[in-house]
Structure formats: C-alpha cells, structure tokens
Design a binder for these strands. Structure first.
Lengths: 302, 302
DNA sequence: CAGCATCTTTACGAAAAACGGAAAGACCCT
DNA sequence: AGGGTCTTTCCGTTTTTCGTAAAGATGCTG
C-alpha cells in the first residue's frame, strides 16, 4: 500500500468523522477507504479508529498517530516545496569550473554583476587547465573551448573565438624573418605543456588545405597567463585566443603574425562553450548563468 | 508510486552510490530502481541525482532532499514504534465506566492495587446508572450486568452474581406476613426508577416456572446505594445484587427473604461483565484490566 | 416496532501499477 | 579497440488496487 496515500486518507477520515464521507471527498469508494484504514491498522498492529456503522471516533493510539502524522506530513510538504523552489528560484550554490585564463579575464570580472543581480546565488569557482568530470566532481557548469562529444552533456556556445599567433615588437625586430609558417622552425615558440609529445601547430588556408608544423622554443607552460607574459617579454611567438590578447594587440605590446591563416592546436572550433548536464529539470541558476555569460561575452568579445 | 518505498530506495541508492547496487541490496531490478528515481524526480520537478553509467552523485537538490527526508523517515519510524508500544506496553489512559454501586464497592477499592502494579496506566472512571455508548464516548471498558446482544462488542464475564430480596429485621418484624411472592403486593417494595412503566419483579422456581409480580412502594431511586440505605432504614423490601449486601446480611442489618426463588428484573443472568470493543489489536491495558478485575472479583465475591 | 436510510466490511471481477528480463546506449578500464 | 558494468527504455507478466455489489449493523422516524 502507498503509505502516503493511506495516511492522507486517514487524515480525511478523521476530518470528516466517517469513512464514506472521506471517500466521497477524495473520490474513492467506501470500500477502498475501509481497506486503507484496515491495512494501516494492521501495519501498526494497533486499532486507530473505533467504528460502528453509525459512529466513528479515535482510539488513544489513533489520536497519538494522528498528531504525529500531521506534523510529519507538514514537513514532507514543506520539503517538497523547498526542493521545488530550489529548482525554480535563482538561489543556492553555483559550482563553476573554467580554464584559468578565461576565468580570470572574463568570468571573475563578470561575477560582481551576476551576484548583484541574483543575491541569493553563491558561486564556487574553480580554475584549472584540465578538464573536470562534471558528474563526479559536482560541477554545475564548466567553461571550455571547443565542442565535445559526450552525449550526456550539453555544450552551449557562449562566444565565437579564434586562435592567433603573436609576438612582441622587440622579438620580431631582432629575429629571423617570418614569411611562411615553415619559418617557425627557426623560432622560439611558446607552447602549452600538454604532454602530447612534440608540440604541433595546425594551419589552414582559405578554409581548407590544413597542414601542421612542429614547433619548439625556450619556454613551455600550462598557464596561458604565463605564456602571455613571456610573449610580452619577448621570449618568442605564442598561440593565443583572440580575446586573451585583445588589449595587447590594441596598444601594440603584441603584434599579430600570419594573419591570413587560421591556426589551432587541434580542431579549428575554438569557440567558448558552457558545458553542463543534460537534464529535464535544469536548475534555474544554471540556465541564468549561462544566459548571463552569453550576453556578457557578446558585449566584451565581439 | 508508493512514496515511502521510493524514498527508501532513494536512501539506499545514495548509500550505495549506485542504482544497481541499491537494487541488489533491496531485491529489486536496476530497471525498477531507475523507474523509482525518475518518478521521484518527476514528482519534485527536480533532478536529484547526477548519474552516468559509471558515476553517481547528488545534486544540490538531492542533497537537501536527502537530509530532510532522512529526518522525516526517522520520525515516521519513531511514530510507528511509539504507537506499537502503546499497544504492547501497559500504559496510557484507561477509560472506565461502571454502574455506581459496583463501581464504588469494588472498582474503586481495587484501583490502588491495579495502579500500583501498572504505574504507567492512568484511569478515568465514570460512574452512572445508564448504559454508555462505548464507541461514541470513547470508553475502553464498561462494567455491566448481564449479557448484551451487540455483536461488535465483547462481554467478558467477571463474576457470577444473583439478585436477592432483602429487608431490615425491623421492617420484617412489624409488616404483614411474607409467605409467597404474591404477598409482596401488600408491601413497600423499593424499586429502581427505570421509567419502564409499572415495576415488575420476576421469580423463578427450580430453574423453571417463571412468573412476574407487579410491585410498588414508598421509595424509588436510580441509585442502588440509596435503595440500600432505604432498606437498612426499614423503608421496605429491596432487590439487590448478592455482592452488594454481603456485609449487611452477614451482620444482620438485612435479612434475605424468599431464598428458594431466583429473582430478577428481567433476565436471570445477572453476572458482572466487562464490555469492550471487539478488536484484533486489543490494547494491552484493556486486557490487563479485565484479567485483573476478574481475579480480584473472584477473590471478593465468591 | 418495523421500515428506511446510511454506514462499515467482505467478496469478486476489472483496471491499473509495478516488476523483471532484454536490449540499447554510455562509459571506464585494461 | 574490446570487455564489463552501468543506466535507461520497452514489453509482457504478475501483483496490487479499485469499484460494484451484497450483507450485516445501527440509528431514526412514523
């Protein structure tokens, strides 16, 4: 028997002081109500209701059970409400993960606006340059580059982005000439430490004709910020995301090279994506933050 | 769906961190467990579990729901226990009703022993000379004379008893002679005020040959104690229960007459009965009190 | 006091729900 | 790349639950 249904019937019976009346009120037959009450009494091993065909009253056990059950039912409904509200209302803790560079450059600066707009949301932001297991680590949203094939996740594109090669004017002035990508073999290239063997940069011309160049240099790092700093200091040529060096290109600290090529580590889709679990009941805080970030990055990046 | 079963499955799932493991533990198929969890999430409109085929973790809503539900389940079990205990343990309030005379003469004096033996039981004793509605008035036990035909009640015989006629020696000395019941017509008979027309006393000889005598007198009352007092004062002849005049007969305050006849108001079964509801789950306090009273009256009456 | 209306309970056939097995898709480990 | 385990969905079967009907009980009323 469904206990919840049974105790609700029990409550109605007490309220109406009659099995039949409770049944009418709940759209049940008297037989069903009677069965429910008998089953409940059997489960408890106690008679709850003194009943004849004309009168019905509570036993002491029934009175005690009724009082306690009423409180418990109220708690259950309250729990239901608060859990449902958790889904509908923008509140709770939002667990974010993003790569360090975009996190520091765009997520953190946008945080204040978001938290002011939704004061009941708290954010727990983790930064790393490695992918996270959204399910295992309990991360609500991961900010990544490029699509992914995991079908149990949703990747929502926040902004377009492309990679580019750049170096400081000082480095370019004193280094060997750079006319084609093949010339990079003679240069110091600042690469991500991805532990995937020899670093390779891929080029694409006119949307086709891909080719790869093996590169090397005097400085590697798993930190985009470190590579950026190294490039600005004239240590070599860096492959960066366009948005991460926008200011530096604008004020001349860095100069873009090979502007006619698309460039990448692997795939050429370098868009910024918000990745989260596929869910029928997506928490509102997740939907809100994704939408907020999409609008925010649209203003800043493009 | 049975909510209670579903949340218990939910608890097991969290404990085992796996739907399949929870199913194995509960003797359910993974399919069933999965259905239960989906149904629970649908009811709440919230995703409770982040699950892939290899990992399972709680969402924030799941965490909140789990914590609250755990407390609620504990309360439900506690309520179950205390209600069951109420049935098994001799405690609670025992609501008694009895006729005034036997109540004052035997129930009240026996009370101390009973309450001392079962200190967790409290007694609420009501005395009246009218039958009570056990169901409507919430009476646990009614002490009555004679069987009753109500099939939803149980009448447990506490003691045998018979009625007898008696009067004070003073009255008998100065009154008209009493050789056969027919002579009662010339006497003052002290009758119960039962509002049933002319009072009638029934006689039976040798277990057969019933006959009735219409009687009248100078004093009526609905109080047995009042009639007893009137008889001792010499106001006339009273029909009393044997136990109610045992002391008076012993010390000569009253004298029994027509000893050869059985006498009654209506039926000749004047045994003392404890009447209570028929119930599969008879509260222990009721069973204990009936047994106690049976033993107690056996000592005193017979 | 007998008839009537309403109530509770049980029996029984029908409707609904839950179950397990199988199959498909996903995912981790080797 | 393949094996093994996991979750989910589909499907046929079993279990449970429901309403109707009938019987017994009870209080009211003429």
């Amino acid at each position: 028997m469904s206990w919840l249904k049974t105790v609700k019937i029990f409550e109605s019976v007490i309220q109406h002081r009659s099995l039949s009346a409770a049944g009418r009120n709940l759209g049940l037959s008297p037989a069903s109500v009677s069965r429910h009450m008998s089953a409940l009494e059997n489960d408890l091993g106690v008679r709850l209701l003194n009943r004849t065909s004309r009168r019905l009253s509570l036993t002491e056990a029934g009175q005690m059970y009724f009082e306690k059950i009423e409180a418990i039912l109220a708690q259950i409904e309250e729990t239901d409400r608060s859990v449902k509200q958790l889904h509908n209302a923008p509140k709770g803790v939002l667990r974010l993960h993003s790569r360090m560079l975009i996190g520091q450059q765009y997520i953190v600066p946008a945080m204040k606006k978001f938290l002011t707009k939704y004061p009941e949301i708290k954010v727990d932001l983790r930064l790393s340059n490695f992918p996270v297991d959204i399910v295992a680590d309990g991360v609500d949203i991961d900010i990544r580059m490029g699509k992914l094939a995991d079908s149990s996740l949703v990747a929502s594109k926040l902004a377009n982005s492309e990679r580019l090669l750049c170096a400081s004017p000082e480095y370019l002035a004193k280094c060997a000439p750079l006319e084609t990508p093949n010339d990079l073999a003679q240069h110091s290239c600042l690469t991500y430490r991805l532990d995937l063997g020899i670093p390779v940069w891929r080029f694409r011309v006119d949307g086709q004709n891909d080719f790869e160049i093996a590169v090397d240099g005097c400085f590697k790092s798993d930190s985009g910020a470190a590579i950026l700093t190294a490039a600005k200091a004239g240590l070599g040529i860096a492959m960066m995301n366009d948005w991460s060096v926008r200011d530096e290109l604008a004020d001349g600290q860095l100069v873009r090279i090979f502007q006619g090529y698309s460039v990448s580590f692997s795939e050429f889709d370098n868009g910024v994506y918000a990745v989260f679990q596929k869910s029928q009941h997506l928490p509102k805080k997740i939907r809100l933050f994704v939408d907020f970030l999409k609008a925010e990055l649209k203003n800043r990046l493009n």
